[in-house]
Every structure is written in C-alpha cells, then in structure tokens.
Write a protein that binds this DNA or RNA. Sequence first.
DNA 1: TGAATACTAGAGCGGTTACTCCAGGAAAGG
DNA 2: CCTTTCCTGGAGTAACCGCTCTAGTATTCA
Lengths: 189, 189
Amino acid sequence: MVIIDAALTRFAEDGFDRATTAAICRTARIGSGTFFHYFPTKLDVLLAILELGTTETGNWFAAQRGRADPGGVLADYVVHAATEFADPRVAGFVKAVGAVMNDEQVAAALARDDAALHDGLLPWVEAAQAAGEVRVDVPAARLCAWVLVVLDGFVGRLAGESGFTAAAEQDMLLDTVQRLLSAGSPAAR
Amino acid sequence: MVIIDAALTRFAEDGFDRATTAAICRTARIGSGTFFHYFPTKLDVLLAILELGTTETGNWFAAQRGRADPGGVLADYVVHAATEFADPRVAGFVKAVGAVMNDEQVAAALARDDAALHDGLLPWVEAAQAAGEVRVDVPAARLCAWVLVVLDGFVGRLAGESGFTAAAEQDMLLDTVQRLLSAGSPAAR
DNA sequence: TGAATACTAGAGCGGTTACTCCAGGAAAGG
DNA sequence: CCTTTCCTGGAGTAACCGCTCTAGTATTCA
C-alpha cells in the first residue's frame, strides 16, 4: 500500500505528531480524500504499520518450526532483526511510536508485538537451556526480556548521527547477545 | 524550579508535542505569562532539562576522579544510572526527547549529553583494559558505546507496563554489562 | 513614602492541522 | 447506452495551541 509506505517514511523522519497528514499525502502523491477513505484517522495508519511488523515476526518464527538447533535459531533471529534495522526508517519509526505510547490502542498493539516476540523466542531459549547451550541461572522468560533489551538499545542508537550503523555493529550485537546468554559468570572482578 | 519539574512530568506523561503549555502551567500552578517569562519557548524547557542531565553526569564523573579501581567505577556508574531510572518520569522523558531529535538544537544537546557520557566512561574503560579487567579485543570507545546501548535498552523497557522495574532488574543490568566487558569469548556453540 | 523594577495572570490572536464534504471520474454490470 | 458503485482530489472548517500583550501586584531601594 502506497499510503502505508509514505506514512512510514514521514513518521520516521518527523515523528508522529509533526508528520502532517498533508505531508503524508504529498509523499504518497494522493489527495487527502484518498487518505481518509482508507484510514479513518492518522493513528490508524500507525496501528496498521505496527500490526504489519507483528505479523512479520510471527511469520518468521513460524518458518523456523522444526529446527533442531535452538542456539542457531536465536543467533539467526538476532541477525534477522539487525538486517531489518538496516532500513534507516525503522529506527526513526520506533522513536515515533514511543511518543504516542500512552495511547490505549498503541499500547495494546505494542503489547501484541512484544508478545509475538516473546512467544517466538521463549521456546528456543528453553530448548537451548535444556541442551546446555544457554545458562540456566536465570529463567528463560527473563532472558528473553533481556535479549529484547539489547535489541531495543541497538535500534535506539542507530538514530544518532554517530557512525553507529546496523551493518558495522551487527557482529558486536551477536557477540553481546551470546555473552548475555552463555553459561558461566563474567570474570570475577 | 517549579516549571522544569512540571514540564518534566508532562513531557514524560504525554510526550513533547502533546504536552500543551497550558497543561504544564496547570500542573505548575502558574499562568502562561509566568511560563513564557522564564522560557521563551516550550522547546527551551526541554533543552534546560537536557542540560541539567548533562551537567549531572559531568559532576558524577568529576567526583570519581582519583579512584584506583576502574572496574569499580564502571560498576558504580551502572548502578548510579539504574538508580536515576527509578524515577518513573525518566523513561517517559527519554521517549519524549526521541520525538524531537530531528530538531537542530535538540540534536546538539543530545550530542553534548552523549559526549559527557562517553568522555566520562572512556578513561575508566581504558584503565580497566590496562589492568586486565576488561577485554582488549574491542577498542575502548566501542565498548563505551555498547555499554550505552545496554543502558538505553534498559530505560526503554521501563516504560512498558510489564513487570520490568529498575529496582528488580538492576542486578541483571550489572551482570549484563559485566558480561559485555569481561575478557574471554562467549561459550563456543 | 514613592518610584522603579520584577514578577504574575489570563484573555486573546494568528497560524496550523486533522478531518469533512462534495463534485467529478472510472470501473463494473447489464 | 445507462446506472450503480467505488474511488479520487482538494477546498473548506472547526478546534486547538504556542505565544503575545497588557494590566495589575509584590518587592526592592532610597
């Protein structure tokens, strides 16, 4: 859909509130009548984008079903995420969503997204624990949450103008997640 | 300053654009005349808050000067940061700032803040490397950036309604940073 | 006391924005 | 060919919001 793509661009660039519907229509090369024919509200476009992301993660994890190497799945997911972050609009969009998180509908959509991520990750972390590939001193659910912490921090830093790019830092991301998950305590101080 | 405190509250709750000056004045119990007497612009309040944070980090690191245990300083900084995040407004405020990052002045203030953090951290990481307490396979500057990645991810997650609180996750935060910095590669897969 | 200065309140203004409304195509179906 | 339904553009509108302005009140200093 042209509208969604244009809205994503504008949200990422200007944030939700500063991205005017007029600007979205301009970059989509449509009139405002068309816009509001498909989406009753500016917010609804944001919600639609969010849901797109949620189903995408659902699909990715569904495609992994049956694999026998839980550690490999976890690693693959991290690079998959990093690859998606290569689209420069993603980082900006995440920030834009943050600005309207208090909205009830947005919070619900975000919770659904988080649940998809969590539910996708959890079985693999548990399997990796059972296989002795991942530490067991922390429950799997908490480990999942912390993988997401690192991932969130990663996207957040991509927005700054410094030389922090998804491509250049991908290996460090993978290394960090592996350190987070690996058995054995950090070197004693 | 009453105004700054009220603005922090409103920004954290509603985001920058949705926090109206009228609302800020209401929670500060002042008239709009007073508000604009002290700050020419709504943006200027945000900038003032940002600068407050920057000088605060500067002061913290200045107070550590002369310590001989670089690893201890790093650990202390992490718990110091986590302690500050205990104020529930911090997480919301960080999100609010993200929405206006494209603004030139905000970007500059953010860059200054980042520089304060980076410059504060860097010498200690270098010292810890020299003392063999921290791995040397990654340059100190990049390690600093990644400590900030984890810290950013941490604040980001505090905003969600899940049971992710600064107090409960502080130990995990410290552990994660230590794993990130410690020598030795993650367990081979 | 009186004058000068600093602060405060809130009504109002100009500009902006999400959204409405309608008039006109373009398919689709017969 | 006509009719019905869907789609499209863009002018217009009502509401809102950052900020200005002015008239009034405290405070300071001599």
